[in-house]
Design a protein around this nucleic acid. Structure first.
Lengths: 337, 337
DNA sequence: TTGTAAGCGTTATCAG
DNA sequence: CTGATAACGCTTACAA
């Protein structure tokens, strides 16, 4: 890699002159500025980022800590983060906690040594279940800005970008009750221990309560793929009165449709199904599932912008932004034949 | 952030003594070593990574450039990369090219200034279509190791981790012909411009040819979601002799199942469907789709290990590893009821 | 056993 | 207009 020193030596001028010339300092003569720049492009000179970082004590890098990236929601958030970060000339270092506390902790600790100027994170499942958040507090106390999205810890003060979990599930439930005239709505949950899961269940319960109906919840306890199908199938088989399903995650809604069809149910006549979904979810089910579409990409963008604001101005550190979800009915994007 | 200088000042010893003590140098007395370490932990000292990087001229960071991360294949590869990198104490900086040449180029250029010790990349769709690869060659010439996976450029010499695209599709096709006794196998493609798409089509064509059958290919030309369904539906409607579908991407196989059911076809009696898939793909279709399962996670791991080898030893730079795929038949993981 | 000093590649201050 | 010098935080000969 070409350095300032090398350029200086080749041109028989000092390092500082070269530096100034490249940075368009007005102290430098037109002549040398051009000579320097020509040689620089010729040798493909690029200022060493590490040296600049050491000098300025800024890494222009954001640490992104995600529970997983194979979940399409987080993948789409990551996409949003990457785009917004690029727009603002930030790099992102990505770490995956794999839903474990120890990896989350390790990543935060390893990166809080000057590697990053701040963190964007969604709390790991284990951390949330165990209510273990000291490691996050430690980072904040060390003056490194942290932004939490989606899975947040309510008693930590920092910027947050969240989904309107309670509200959108409330509305979806009410839609099933009022528009689709459903009375036995089963909530299927594979994420009941997460903060978002709890909020969604509350939204569902409140809506049923407000309409004098009885909540029925099938908790899958974070089951494995194989068991998910079995549990849903068996439940539907033994509880034939169920006329609607509300899945609060991204997968079990589609599984429910498939299992219901297997049981001979006609969708949506016998059973309405609403789930959570992302951009391409509806392409994967037939008939199309109705989805609560979280604006994952937008969540990523907003998170990044908010964190960068916070990095630049320490005082901007306790804002919470709610990104509203959108209920996409099966009909509204259904392909016409 | 605490620095060596601060520790030294507080202990009234020199910076180098502190440094050595922390690095367990044998030159340092038991006594001071302990004193230093105690204070260090007390003040939560962490060596400034940026300074270390400048000193050693190593970033211990890998640049990962992916076309997208919302495609589950790349998400899973990223997961593999992250885990392997963490194991070897490397960070990863992730950039998404969004399938565009200019973003890919920009990312490579921006990171090749000391930010990373090497790159792992899958070439963007646009770069592959336009056969524009000078930017990648430039990096390699500048002595930064590059590893390409999945979508590779054949006339660039570097480490590569690829899938057995030709072979696995050949075998899947042969399976349809020999075991399932299919004669009119439609290949559905939404990625025919990619190197991997071409190889898969060749594998399919060769298998048909070897068995004296005629290839029939439905190219979707990188169509949007809405059109994918329509095109497949219409094709199946007007070509009723089709008795098997081979999808060479991760989505259109499931769409094909749904469209075939819509047309009243019974699967797998009337129509066998094989697609590409990842870990959870089969959970999303009913009946379960047979999939060619690419070991995406393993691809990520192998890529990382190979790149790190190359970083440590410059001479290890022209190996190609083929990660075999696995044909997962619908029956083999089918849930039993 | 401890300390001094140089250097990684930049930028910034100050002097010439 | 140009250059010498110091500094960012760390490591490491080399001296003491």
């Amino acid at each position: 890699m070409t350095t300032l020193k090398e350029l200086a030596a080749l041109l028989n001028i000092s390092v500082s002159t070269v530096s100034k010339a490249l940075n368009d300092s007005h102290e430098i003569s037109e002549n040398t500025r051009i000579r320097v720049k020509e040689l620089a492009t010729k040798l493909n000179y690029k200022p060493n980022r590490i040296a600049q970082q050491l000098k300025t004590n800024k890494s222009k890098t954001i640490g992104v800590i995600l529970p997983t990236v194979t979940n399409p929601f987080f993948a789409e958030v990551l996409h949003g983060i990457e785009m917004a970060a690029t727009d603002s000339d930030y790099d992102i270092i990505v770490c995956l906690s794999n839903e474990t506390l120890h990896k989350e902790k390790r990543s935060l600790e390893l990166l809080s040594n000057g590697s990053v100027d701040g963190f964007i994170m969604a709390v790991a499942r284990e951390s949330q279940v165990k209510k273990e958040t000291d490691h996050i507090n430690a980072i904040i106390k060390s003056k490194l800005p942290v932004l939490m999205f989606d899975r947040v810890v309510s008693d930590i003060e920092c910027n947050k970008v969240i989904v309107d979990d309670f509200q959108c599930v409330y509305e979806a439930t009410e839609y099933l009750i009022l528009k689709e005239k459903r009375k036995n709505i089963l909530l299927v949950s594979n994420i009941e221990e997460l903060s978002v899961g709890k909020l969604r269940i509350e939204g569902y319960s409140k809506a049923l309560e407000d309409h004098n109906l009885k909540p029925v919840i099938l908790k899958l306890d974070n089951a494995k793929d194989e068991d998910v199908e079995n549990k849903i199938y068996n439940y539907l088989k033994s509880n034939t009165s169920i006329d609607a399903i509300l899945s609060i995650d991204h997968v079990t809604g589609i599984v429910a449709i498939n299992m219901a069809k297997k049981l001979g149910k006609v969708i949506p006549k016998d059973l309405s199904v609403v789930g959570f979904g992302y951009e391409h979810t509806q392409l994967l089910s037939s008939p199309k599932i109705s989805i609560i579409h979280q604006k994952a990409h937008k969540i990523g963008e907003m998170s990044t912008m908010l964190l960068i604001d916070n990095i630049k101005d320490e005082s901007l550190r306790s804002k919470t932004i709610v990104v509203p979800s959108e209920l996409k009915l099966s009909g509204s994007t259904q392909t016409k034949f």
